[in-house]
Design a protein around this nucleic acid. Structure first.
Length: 820
DNA sequence: CGGACGAGGATTTTT
DNA sequence: TCCTCGTCCG
């Protein structure tokens, strides 16, 4: 028997060795869940299971990557090659790429992230002339997502009277119209949002039995990590794939289910044994991570929940210290107390910063903590906040790539047709859109193939569009032959994005350039990696011959999040992140900040018992991140929306059995049963209701035949996932750019207008010409360097001495001509 | 067109 | 409080 098997405890080993049976592995916090999963796969491979027949699904790319790495260490990296290991989204995006034509999508379909989706919803709402007051794009998008997660297509929705009744009740009678239009637009754009990836796989498997059969035959073994995270659409996929051989192994912990708001269903794990009656059940109950004190304290909390698989988590490690509780008067003081405690712990305890974390309920809490850490020169890295992929320069560049790859992507077209500014305004785009609609083509197809007259475009606009279309066409042409990286660079250059930022000297432009560079580097990294994989698969011989396209890279990147690119400089730093972000991680020292009623538990959760239970699980997750010591803190007052509010200590503090706490003061009344505000309650209740109604519908709105149906929805989710965005806090003197976001720092200093306000300068109304010397009330004197025709007006570029180069429109410019 | 300014929303969590 | 979005204006 291999060495790694021998090192497992009995239950773990059983769970690994019994790979021929459907299995439910209930894995408590710190019980070696990932280890078991990894060993099971390694063992399977050793027993001769072909890697291509193994489908291992995780919730984050990072989890997948780490698992592959660890299997590689147990066996050899080469042996992990053919494994299908990845997130639900990335694996099925790949499958959909191969099958896209059956579903009427282009092979290079675009993947919309949530913000793309939201924009699209907004566009749809506008097109329907609805008010985005009543129809808030965010809410609508969330509801669409909920529907899709329950496999309710627009037509299924239409066939469902109760859902529509609900919409009417909510005063959103036209929701369905928006949903329909949104779905149509996505399809026309050749785009799928995240939820579509799962929905469309279900449709593929439903409508094309041969496709289903193909994948059923291919995947003899299916493993799902964090099974309690799965939503209905994911569950349905698993069931379909498994319905013949039924060799499914799921791993999860109901006590760590914290994602119900996203439609995850704790029932999936609770019902697994009904779905697979001959499944073996393995309960991993020994916690190898934390001290007894921490495990016991965590148990004393989670006991208060009603909905759970009973299991007894225990630690045979050290007794450990008691959990310290810190009280502060304000959020600022809380932060600084944490910082000094942390500093002392690291100094005294010989623990590196990288083994400490400060966890909190909401990202908003990070600011005070950052400040406190900075004041003490404690290095930290913070996850969350504005993501790399959400930054303007990145989204812009990606939109170019998207358009080049998928000419139907109108959303991308609209985004970049005038970014960087090239004089194509709303009017022009509107005309193209009208023409495109009339012709039934996409915007870019119209712009590149139709004559200007057909689009009613005049001289200048026609010329601009022609240039733009030409550029995209050139870039598209490169696609077949050019290296992905070269194409990326070419796109960045020809689009003018690079040039625009290079011209500016402000810090955020520099940082934008760095981001672009990083994005381009990721293309190179990706192609190199793919090429290596291809080479090792094909064996010796044709190294480097395979052509990795930018399409593939784009497809890959669309499913990445920031947590997927941690940098090595982030080594020895304190980790700051939300509790959600910390799931699956562990640290020697953990601080949990903001243990106050209405914050943790969150105000939004207090409307329903289920909500509160989920918060409790969240707190359980927070506490069980700690290996050796945990510190809990709260403040008695806190700035919230710019206002000072008073807070009471969280009920969770009094729920922990006091014998595990080091409590130097009285907690007071402990904040039991605080009432949510009425308006909160209404909102929460509505959300619950919607969820239940939809769940009961079953997939596609039909009566679910066989397996689809669930009694009701009460969700939750877990995930071994890693944090979002990293931002840097340089040790010595961090730039105060919290969140790594760049707001435009006021404009140029308003020019040292040499002249006083001159009284009655008469604006010049005739035609301007290059070389004219003009004067502007604010910018001073300058020379006209360019003049263009712009929809019946003139656009004039003037080089001002003090204020730099400005582009002005004649009808607004109010220039006086000093010399012709 | 693009910059400036003001109003209003935001705080769960992620693929 | 901070950030985003929309409107207004040159």
């Amino acid at each position: 028997m291999s060495e790694y098997i021998e090192k497992l405890n009995d239950v773990q080993r059983e769970a690994v060795v019994n790979y021929r049976f459907p299995s439910l592995i209930v894995a408590g916090a710190g019980s070696g869940k990932t280890r078991v999963l990894t060993c099971r796969i390694a063992y399977m491979l050793e027993q001769g299971v072909p890697p291509q027949s193994v489908l291992a699904l995780t919730f984050t790319n990072k989890a997948a990557r780490e698992m592959r790495e660890r299997i590689g260490q147990l066996l050899s990296p080469a042996m992990t090659r053919g494994l299908w290991m990845g997130t639900f989204h990335s694996i099925f995006a790949r499958i959909l790429r191969d099958e896209s034509d059956r579903l009427g999508y282009p092979r290079s379909y675009t993947i919309y992230d949530s913000s793309d989706a939201k924009n699209m919803v907004k566009t749809a709402i506008r097109e329907l002339n609805l008010s985005d007051e009543t129809y808030k794009p965010g809410d609508i998008a969330a509801r669409i997502s909920l529907a899709k997660n329950n496999l309710i297509t627009p037509s299924a929705y239409e066939a469902n009277a109760s859902l529509q009744a609900e919409d009417r009740e909510r005063r959103r009678p036209q929701f369905l119209d928006i949903y329909k239009l949104y779905a149509r637009k996505c399809r026309e754009n050749g785009a799928m949002d995240f939820d579509d990836l799962l929905l469309n796989v279900n449709i593929l498997f439903r409508d094309f039995p041969d496709a289903l059969e193909k994948y059923q035959n291919q995947f003899g073994y299916i493993l799902v990590d964090e099974y309690q995270d799965t939503n209905f659409a994911q569950y349905a996929i698993i069931r379909r794939l498994a319905q013949n051989h039924a060799n499914v192994c799921v791993v999860g912990d109901d006590a760590q289910s914290i994602y119900s708001f996203r439609g995850a269903k704790i029932e999936n794990i609770l019902r697994f044994q009904n779905d697979f009656p001959d499944a073996k059940v393995f309960k991993l109950e020994q916690n190898y991570r934390s001290t007894q004190n921490i495990v016991n304290a965590a148990n004393s909390i989670i006991e208060k929940n009603t909905k759970q698989i009973r299991k007894k988590s225990f630690s045979s490690g050290d007794q450990g210290e008691k959990i310290k509780v810190i009280k502060a008067y304000t959020d600022k003081e809380e932060a600084s107390l944490i910082a000094s405690d942390l500093y002392a712990a690291v100094r005294g305890g010989g623990v590196p910063y990288s083994e400490t974390a400060v966890l909190y309920r909401t990202n908003a809490q990070s600011r005070a903590l950052e400040e406190a850490l900075r004041n003490r020169n404690i290095p930290y890295k913070i996850y969350g906040g504005v993501s790399f992929y959400q930054r303007k320069e990145i989204k812009d560049l990606l939109a170019y790539v998207r358009l080049v790859v998928n000419p139907k992507d109108d959303e991308a077209f609209r985004r970049i047709v005038n970014t960087p500014s090239r004089g194509i305004g709303d009017v022009t785009v509107g005309r193209i859109a009208a023409a495109a609609q009339a012709a039934g083509t996409s915007l870019w197809e119209a712009a590149s193939t139709m004559t200007p007259e057909n689009m009613e475009l005049k001289g200048a606009a026609a010329k601009k569009i022609k240039e733009f279309a030409g550029m995209i066409a050139d870039l598209s042409a490169m696609r077949a032959t050019a290296e992905a990286y070269d194409l990326g660079l070419e796109i960045a250059t020809r689009s003018g994005i690079l040039g625009t930022y290079k011209m500016q000297q402000v810090p955020e432009a520099v940082s934008a350039l760095e981001n672009i560079e990083e994005l381009l580097n990721s293309i190179r990294a990706y192609t190199d990696e793919q090429r290596q994989i291809a080479a090792s698969e094909e064996g010796e011989g044709e190294t480097g011959t395979s052509h990795v396209t930018i399409d593939e890279w784009l497809q890959n990147i669309a499913l990445l999040t920031d947590m997927d690119n941690e940098k090595s400089e982030d080594r020895d730093r304190v980790t700051l992140m939300t509790v959600h972000g910390a799931k699956g991680l562990e640290f020697e020292h953990v601080y949990v900040a903001g243990l106050e009623e209405n914050l943790f538990p969150s105000m939004m959760s207090l409307g329903t018992p289920e909500g509160l239970e989920e918060e409790r699980r969240l707190f359980y997750v927070a506490l069980t991140r700690a290996k050796r010591s945990a510190v809990l803190s709260f403040a008695e007052s806190r700035f919230k929306w710019g206002e000072m509010t008073f807070c009471r200590p969280s009920r969770f503090l009094s729920e922990i059995d006091p014998k595990y706490l080091d409590l130097q003061f009285d907690l007071g009344e402990g904040g039991q049963n605080e009432d949510a505000t009425p308006q909160r309650q209404v909102r929460t209740r509505f959300a619950e209701r919607g969820r239940n109604a939809e769940t009961q519908r079953g997939e596609y709105g039909r009566r679910p035949g066989g397996y689809g149906q669930r009694p009701d929805a009460y969700g939750g989710e877990t995930r071994t996932y890693y944090p979002p965005k990293t931002q840097e806090c340089p040790t010595p003197r961090p730039v105060p750019a919290p969140g790594g976001r760049f707001r435009s720092m006021g404009s140029r200093p308003a020019a040292e207008t040499g002249g006083a306000e001159r009284a009655a300068a008469v604006p010049f109304d005739g035609d301007y010409a290059e070389g004219m010397l003009v004067e502007h009330a604010k910018f001073g004197v300058g020379t006209v360097t360019a003049v263009e025709e712009w929809s019946g007006d003139q656009k004039i570029t003037v080089e001002f001495g003090g204020a730099g180069r400005k582009t002005l429109l004649r009808k607004f410019a109010k220039l006086t001509v000093l010399k012709k």
